[in-house]
Design a protein around this nucleic acid. Structure first.
Lengths: 126, 126
DNA sequence: TTCGCTGCAAAATATTTGCATTCAC
DNA sequence: GTGAATGCAAATATTTTGCAGCGAA
């Protein structure tokens, strides 16, 4: 499928690119409204879907009952603060040893993994 | 809070204990209905909530947009098959080295982590 | 008897679908 | 012009809340 560059898509992509942490659909909708770009929420969901399916976005769940998206970047994991909700990145570890062990022991062919850490960020420990 | 042993709670707990993989609310509701125990879905959700908050259940998300629960057992991770949807366990690795590295480098205090692998189970590779 | 549990109705939240119209290329 | 994108309304899926009555301990 041939992706087109519409104002809504550009704004959504821009917001995602500039976000410091994975964002959910509502945050995008609120941002667009604050910019007087009154994009319909359906359009936001459809854009997230298309961008995700075309491999431009990564999608995560952090135990919140909703999805969060971020522009694809180097493999990394997330540190989710249980207190303030902030999400920080931590450089990706490929878990290669563990994955080959699983391949040997379970016969399972791993395509991807998802690793999140939960706890207290530096700021919230004080 | 003082937990009581009601028929609904017993049935839900039993189903969770006997399940080979984490289950969602709907699976529990369907099971109860199949047993002619027409427990209301609200009761199921409330039981999951109470059992989870009392530390009897673990709660996971596998990128499906809903929660799955399982009776608490030894620390382990999940192998989620992208084709048939089956979930298998893999013995827990504590990621201790990685966690202390994160503690040092990010100042983040880790309380828990969640690690899921996605790919193809042995059966679905054939 | 008390406090937790349940059912029912309704609401809240997150996401998806149908359809007609508009727009990017 | 064609296929993709959008808006609106409506629907679906998951989960939560209010309230009155019931039941386990």
């Amino acid at each position: 499928m041939q992706l087109k560059n519409t104002p809504a898509r550009a704004a959504i992509s821009n917001f995602l690119i500039n976000s410091k942490e994975p964002v959910d659909a509502l945050q995008i909708i609120n941002f667009l409204h604050s910019k007087k770009l009154n994009t319909n929420k359906v359009t936001v969901y459809r854009n997230l879907d298309v961008l995700y399916k075309n491999g431009l976005l990564d999608r995560f769940e952090f135990g919140e009952g909703k999805f969060r998206y971020e522009f694809k970047k180097n493999h990394h994991h997330h540190l989710v603060c249980n207190k303030c909700g902030r999400v920080e990145d931590v450089a990706g570890e490929y878990l290669t040893d563990l994955e080959s062990k699983i391949r040997r022991q379970n016969g399972f062919l791993i395509k991807s993994h998802s690793l999140e850490f939960y706890g207290l960020c530096r700021r919230c420990q004080k």
